[in-house]
């Protein structure tokens, strides 16, 4: 793990933010439309996939994760994996006949 100082700031231009914002709005549009068509059982999956994509943009650009040290990415991986484990392991119980 690299813990050396990393003080020089990374400046992200306004234009880039506007671009990300437009992408997020577009994805919002897609998710609303997708829900409208009625994809049956896939509705949740599609909705969650789109939501994950949106959060990827927010995390990487708005929250500057892309420009942070590797440790931060490792951290967030740990956090998400932990949550994924909590939810999957709970469903070991619920998604099988009890």
């Amino acid at each position: 793990m690299s813990d050396h100082h990393h003080q020089e700031a990374h400046v992200i231009e306004y234009g880039k933010y506007i671009f990300i914002w437009l992408a997020l709005l577009a994805f919002t549009g897609i998710t609303v439309t997708a829900a409208g068509i009625g994809l049956g059982n896939w509705t949740v999956v599609v909705a969650l996939l789109i939501a994950s994509t949106k959060s990827w943009f927010v995390l990487n650009y708005f929250m500057h994760l892309k420009y942070e040290d590797r440790v931060f990415k490792l951290f967030i991986a740990v956090a998400f994996i932990t949550f994924a484990i909590f939810i999957t392991f709970t469903f070991w119980d619920y998604s099988f006949t009890r």
Partner: peptide, 16 residues
């Protein structure tokens, strides 16, 4: 990963 071993009599699924 082992929390549900407190609940073995709760009637969980066999997989769990």
């Amino acid at each position: 990963l082992v929390w549900a071993h407190h609940m073995f009599t709760a009637g969980m699924s066999d997989t769990a």
